[in-house]
């Protein structure tokens, strides 16, 4: 199975792929790096090695949806979305954020399929917004120095989805 992480600061994912592999051995981890400030260029490979992930793909506002659709079409893929990736844009309404919009659309389209997107954030006021909007599809995030620490096992819906997909 594959787990896709959408993040604008990939440096803080040091240890996350390892954490995912601990609870889901052998899973493939792909990082979608949204509109990063760093022009990684040749350093992308260096970063990929540092993060211990399988793939790093740079995406932006214009191709994010297309890339996510492509990945979402594989039912054996789960998604972890960072909430605060639109920080530079003047977006006063939470639901207008590009990642939130996408997730809401997928949830509405889900019908009998399993809805496969989970959100995390370390920004206090956004925690309330994702809990209110996505309820059980929220992963508690903390910080370990400059790295992100995700309480993956504390999210029953994610653990359940992992179990289901591992069984496939």
């Amino acid at each position: 199975m594959r787990i896709v992480i959408l993040e604008d600061y990939p440096e803080r994912l040091v240890g996350t792929a390892e954490q995912l592999n601990d609870i889901c051995p052998g899973c493939e981890v792909e990082v979608l790096c949204y509109d990063p400030q760093n022009d990684y260029g040749e350093k992308a490979e260096e970063l990929r090695t540092k993060l211990l992930c399988n793939t790093i793909t740079i995406v932006d506002y214009w191709n994010l949806e297309e890339k996510l659709d492509e990945l979402y079409s594989d039912p054996d893929t789960l998604f972890l979305f960072d909430t605060d990736i639109d920080r530079g844009a003047v977006i006063e309404v939470f639901e207008y954020r590009i990642n939130v919009r996408y997730a809401l659309k997928k949830r509405d389209d889900a019908d009998n399929q399993l809805y496969r997107i989970w959100f995390y954030t370390t920004v206090e006021h956004l925690k309330r917004a994702i809990e209110r909007t996505f309820g059980e599809h929220v992963i508690v995030a903390g910080q370990n120095g400059a790295s992100l620490s995700l309480d993956l096992e504390g999210c029953p819906t994610f653990v359940e989805a992992l179990g289901l997909h591992q069984a496939v």
């Binding site: 600061y9 440096e11 803080r12 960072d82 605060d84 920080r87 954030t121 370390t122 920004v123 206090e124 910080q143 120095g145 400059a146 790295s147 992100l148």
Partner: peptide
């Protein structure tokens, strides 16, 4: 000095 997460720091 333990809040060093980039997202929280920018906020």
């Amino acid at each position: 000095a333990d809040n060093l997460d980039s997202e929280s720091l920018i906020e």
